[in-house]
Design a protein around this nucleic acid. Structure first.
Length: 862
RNA sequence: GCCGGGAUGGCGAAACAGGCAGACGCACCGGACUCAAAAUCCGGCGGUAGCGAUACCGUGAGGGUUCGACUCCCUCUCCCGGCACCA
């Protein structure tokens, strides 16, 4: 090996060694505690790896290596979430089979990842598009189906014309597909749904036992959106009709002054009076045309129309008008509400707009009424006021008024009392509502898992028996939807039209495919037993490896992958296939890697190599024009993407790994700088120079015995700090501590070989290639991957003398150096006698002396 | 509006349990080596005043608790992320 730090040679050598020796192969070993550390596996895009990927991968790799050295049996796998739209689009364009494109991309990703020296067990590599994998995805679907959790329904769904497919609620925001921004519209279609709502309560409650970031848990709670309240039945006056509303404020029932139905409510046209019919029909038409985006924009002004009908308030038999308005959502609750304008901001605004009466039923503790009684205007509704008389809305707690049996109670008690009252009379009941809706699980695409379903001539749907799985994707020569709008699989007529093996009768296959989330919902289970042909995973493997101990990935999957996976896992738990009802106990979100981008006055971006720094401004090299330098998310369009291959070529994988960890705390967003990479690269060169001479031998400063004692103490301090930092995932500070050690060691005349070996082990999880090389140079003929992690000796940390800062009135005035075993009295004496301290206490009385052992002295003087 | 997370030198950051603010690195400045440059090594580097010892100021703003606050409490500002007519 060359004398200088030849990262290229060292890294390729050890990467080859690890692969050939299967150094990181994991096998069940009941004598060792297991540790399952998992990365969110990537979608292998055609663009290859991005510097953002290795950030999380490096963090988990460091922990995997650390845990192995601590005696854990580590499961650290990698695979590909390879179904998905980009490959399918490419296939439509070029006619090339998506599987070929996918495999090519996987090869690129694998090569790039292997070049980073990540210690994955490559024998466990999985690919969700592999029939040997999706066979089991189909099996899990059949488990869901057989447990009654999969159903077909004709309902308004999110249809994305640009993608020619439907989408789940979780994939749509503000009327757009979250990934691409393409508009989404409502369209009635027959689709497969999964009953995730049946698990809403458990998905919510079990968040409490997970060590996940608060933000993610909060987002899931919000998405599930549990709310407690009551269903209340309202009769429509003068007709046999009635409707139910859901309210979280049954306590305000006496304040209800009107009701609102969603335009889509089945009752709207039936109860509308002839005089109002034209207006109502027109309103419903407009509402239908409005997209979700339009609704968002009109947030400020509320619209609606009176039906002419009246509802009977069950608590007091008052007749109140029924309106229809699009501020009431058809999808939530019953698509109908009772409106209490005095105590609900939305109802208040609507009442103001349409001059609907207001009744105050909650009196604020301050005693100020929200109603201005000096105003003359009176409402037609008895006991109510015109909206002009009401100056504000009150949604907080208070004392019930104008509410007969509830008067004098607070909000919480009133809720209980009225709910019981309604239940006794059969007029309503306490209920819980969720915002979460069932998961729309079918897509009109080719490149996804086929459903293992057969529809008989009788219309009955049966699941394909286990022995006939996988249902393979048929070969097609055109991946577009059919001309009559059927999914691409409908083109495979021979595949679609088959025979039901049980009945022997003709049957048709489902032509929708599963969404991309399906494969990632359970991949962590397959990693436990990835080559099992007889079952998705063996009980033994699942029992041993699950649950995931640490799961690292980006925060963008907060309510998609992470919620869907939790749901599937609970179903598998209920079905007895897994032994825990959550799949990952600890979750960590890495931050984003940002980069400088350079934009000229016209807004055009320039590549970093096209600009140079001149004092405190950046200029175009070609023209000298000053450009604006800013920190932004990396993207091709901003010309600021850093390619990991370039970094590895120039500085090596160890530098790349070390830099990504040294940039700052893992969970924070931070900007990439080339100078920063050079900084850690210099550190590794210093490490090399510390150990190795110009001719490639071990440096003479490394001695068998008699080395610098203070360096031994430094080593023990470093072991303690690095170990602690690793446990806290504080990689940046761990690296800083190792830099301090190296800086000190460079200055020492001689250091003990044993100490330097220990240091090499400390460095190895972070920069494994250089560490292996140094380990070998020091005479070891086996990998250090399983060498015991260094232990520190508390006794070795003790210094002979300690320096203690001395404050007077909390201000630092001096420092004293005392023997480590000096007692308090001696230290205080020394503090008061210190020449720097003396001027600040002379002529004053010391009224209090504070000594924090080993830390600090503070003298309080008057 | 609500929820989650932030704000510390020129920059990325550190201070784990209330005890020396700025470890470590980058950038920058000075020096050594060199014909020269690069690389490397040594030194400096929060602000103000001062030749200096040193003094004062300083962790988004204001208040509080404390011998002592980046850290705890209250109020507020700004930034990032999420949700938002969900009754």
């Amino acid at each position: 090996m060359a004398a200088h730090y030849d990262h290229e040679a060292i890294e390729t050598k050890w990467q080859k060694f690890w692969i050939e020796n299967k150094t990181f192969k994991a096998e069940i070993d009941h004598d060792k505690p297991k540790y399952y550390v998992l990365d969110m596996f990537p979608y292998p895009s055609g663009d290859g790896l991005h510097v953002g990927h290795p950030e999380g991968y490096t963090a988990t790799d460091i922990l995997a290596r650390y845990k192995r050295m601590r005696g854990f049996n580590v499961l650290h796998p990698m695979g590909w979430d390879a179904f998905g739209l980009p490959a399918e689009r490419h296939a439509v364009r070029t006619g090339e089979h998506p599987a070929i494109i996918t495999n090519r991309n996987c090869d690129t990703f694998r090569k790039q990842i292997q070049r980073l020296g990540l210690s994955y067990d490559w024998d466990r590599e999985i690919n969700t598009t592999d029939p040997g994998y999706y066979k089991w995805t189909q099996w899990i679907f059949s488990v869901l189906f057989e447990r009654g959790l999969a159903y077909e329904v004709e309902a308004p769904v999110n249809w994305c014309p640009a993608l020619n497919t439907v989408l789940a609620n979780e994939e749509v925001k503000d009327g757009k597909y979250v990934e691409t921004g393409d508009p989404v519209e409502k369209r009635a279609m027959r689709q497969w749904m999964l009953k995730i709502t049946e698990y809403a309560e458990r998905l919510l409650a079990d968040l409490d036992k997970l060590d996940w970031p608060e933000g993610i848990k909060a987002m899931q709670r919000e998405w599930i959106g549990r709310s407690e309240g009551a269903d209340v039945e309202f009769a429509v006056a003068g007709s046999g009709e009635k409707f139910t509303v859901f309210t979280t404020r049954p306590d305000t029932l006496f304040g209800a002054t009107y009701c609102v139905l969603a335009p889509e409510h089945p009752l709207t046209l039936r109860i509308t009076t002839d005089e109002q019919r034209a207006a109502v029909e027109a309103y419903i038409k407009t509402a239908e045309r409005k997209s979700a985006q339009d609704r968002m924009k009109e947030e400020v002004t509320k619209t609606g129309v009176f039906t002419g009908a009246y509802a009977v308030n069950p608590v007091n038999n008052k007749e109140i008008p029924i309106w229809i308005a699009d501020y009431v959502l058809a999808e939530y609750g019953y698509g109908a509400i009772m409106a209490v304008p005095a105590h609900d901001a939305r109802d208040y605004e609507f009442a103001k707009t349409f001059s609907l009466p207001i009744i105050e039923v909650i009196s604020r503790s301050s005693g100020d009424s929200i109603i201005n009684r000096d105003c003359e205007a009176q409402s037609s509704l008895s006991g109510a006021y015109c909206p002009q008389n009401c100056e504000e809305v009150w949604t907080g707690d208070g004392v019930l008024v104008n509410s007969q049996i509830l008067d004098g109670l607070n909000v919480a008690d009133a809720k209980k009392k009225i709910t019981a009252w309604l239940e006794e009379r059969g007029l309503g009941k306490g209920t819980v509502n969720y915002r979460l809706r069932d998961w729309l699980f079918s897509r009109q695409r080719y490149w996804g898992e086929p459903f293992p379903l057969l529809r008989g001539e009788d219309g009955v749907v049966r699941v394909v028996p286990m022995k006939d799985l996988p249902v393979l994707l048929p070969e097609l020569d055109d991946y577009r939807p059919t001309d009559d709008g059927m999914p691409p699989l409908a083109r495979a007529t021979e595949w679609v039209n088959t025979t039901d093996p049980e009945t022997g009768k003709p049957a048709a296959r489902e032509t929708n495919t599963m969404p991309q989330w399906a494969g990632s919902c359970w991949y962590f289970l397959r990693f436990c037993d990835p080559r099992n042909d007889n079952e998705a995973f063996s009980k033994e493997a699942e029992n041993y490896w699950m649950p995931v101990d640490l799961y690292v990935g980006g925060a963008e999957h907060a309510v998609l992958h992470l919620l869907y996976s939790r749901f599937w896992h609970k179903v598998l738990y209920d079905a007895g296939h897994v032994h825990t009802d959550e799949f990952a106990m600890k979750l960590f979100n890495q931050g984003m890697i940002l980069a400088y981008s350079y934009q000229d006055k016209q807004g055009k971006y320039h590549y970093p190599h096209e600009v140079e720094r001149d004092g405190d401004v950046w200029k175009l090299k070609a023209t000298g024009e000053v450009v604006n330098a800013q920190i932004e998310k990396m993207s091709k369009s901003r010309y600021n993407v850093v390619n990991p291959d370039d970094v590895v070529r120039e500085y090596g994988a160890d530098s790349m790994r070390l830099y990504e960890m040294f940039m700052g705390p893992l969970d924070r967003d931070k900007p990439w700088t080339e100078e920063g990479v050079q900084g850690v690269h210099r550190f590794l060169r210093r490490v090399w120079a510390l150990f190795v001479t110009e001719d490639g031998g071990i440096h003479s400063r490394i001695v068998e015995s008699g080395g610098d004692e203070t360096m031994t103490r430094e080593l023990h301090k470093t072991i303690k700090a690095v170990t602690n930092d690793l446990e806290n995932m504080s990689f940046n500070t761990a690296i800083a501590r190792m830099m301090e050690f190296v800086n000190a060691a460079m200055k020492a005349a001689a250091v003990n070989k044993a100490d330097m070996e220990q240091f090499t082990l400390l460095l190895s999880p972070f920069a494994p290639h250089i560490a292996e090389e140094l380990w070998e140079k020091m005479g070891h003929d086996t990998t250090l991957a399983y060498a015991p992690w260094p232990e520190y000796d508390e006794a070795r940390l003790v210094e002979n003398t300690i320096e203690i800062p001395v404050q007077v009135l909390g201000k630092l005035r001096g420092r004293i150096v005392v023997p480590a075993d000096a007692d308090q009295a001696a230290i205080l004496e020394a503090a008061k006698a210190d020449p720097k301290v003396l001027p600040h206490i002379e002529g004053k009385t010391v009224v209090k002396e504070i000594y924090i052992p080993g830390k600090m002295v503070n003298l309080v003087v008057k």
